[in-house]
Design a protein around this nucleic acid. Structure first.
Length: 195
DNA sequence: CATGGGATTGACT
DNA sequence: GTCAATCCCATGC
């Protein structure tokens, strides 16, 4: 399996987001297949880059293929893949994975859910959950998704041409109508509300 | 300098 | 369905 290179990300974010479905995210031996993504672009107000270049959005405007990791609600780390050219603020939010390798270590990192160890389906079925399960934190902001420590690999044969359903994005207050969310159709690891 | 608001989750009613 | 946790940073005075 080969890591995706910068040129994969250096094109319109709406093109990259569905193409990341079926690719694999890996960090320190833990990995999962991407089953849900969302596209964000500086031209619309739900994107952090909409406000322009600030210390927070510096990586978002950086080179394609970088990881943009930021803190959400003061608690969670959310993982994005920076897209389009350097100087353009655009990224794909990785929202859910199907756990693949290192599942027991993910269970340790996720801790108890409802007083019990997380079931496989609860490990990576949300953007905050998957970063916790894989051990991805804010210090990975600005690192290369081709070279690591967090890497994204191309689709393997089992995900050659996945069935994808598009819908509206989750948890935002602006530009809510844009159908920029992409899910592997029917996959149980997609976050709620499932498409 | 003070304030307010999240690209969420889990616990509780 | 509702709600608190928790903190960075954008914005406004």
């Amino acid at each position: 399996m080969r890591a995706l290179r910068a040129d994969f990300y250096a094109r319109p974010v709406l093109e990259v987001a569905p193409k990341l479905i079926g690719c694999t995210v890996e960090h320190e031996g833990c990995s999962g297949v991407i089953v849900e993504t969302e596209a964000y672009h500086e031209s619309e107000p739900a994107c952090h880059a909409f406000a322009g270049l600030t210390p927070r959005t510096e990586v978002l405007f950086g080179k394609p293929g970088l990881a943009y990791v930021y803190r959400s609600y003061g608690i969670h780390a959310l993982l994005n893949a920076v897209c389009e050219g350097e100087g353009v603020g655009a990224a794909v939010l990785i929202r859910a994975l199907t756990p693949l390798e290192g599942i027991e270590q993910m269970r340790v990192r996720r801790g108890l859910v409802g007083g019990k160890p997380a079931r496989d389906r609860e490990l990576c079925s949300g953007p905050g959950k998957l970063t916790q399960a894989l051990g991805i934190w804010l210090d990975q902001n600005g690192t290369s998704l081709s070279r690591g420590p967090v890497r994204i690999f191309e689709r393997d044969d089992a995900w050659r041409s996945p069935d994808i359903t598009a819908g509206t994005r989750i948890g935002i207050t602006h530009a809510v109508e844009l159908p920029w969310r992409f899910c592997a159709t029917g996959d149980r690891n997609v976050s709620r509300p499932r498409l």
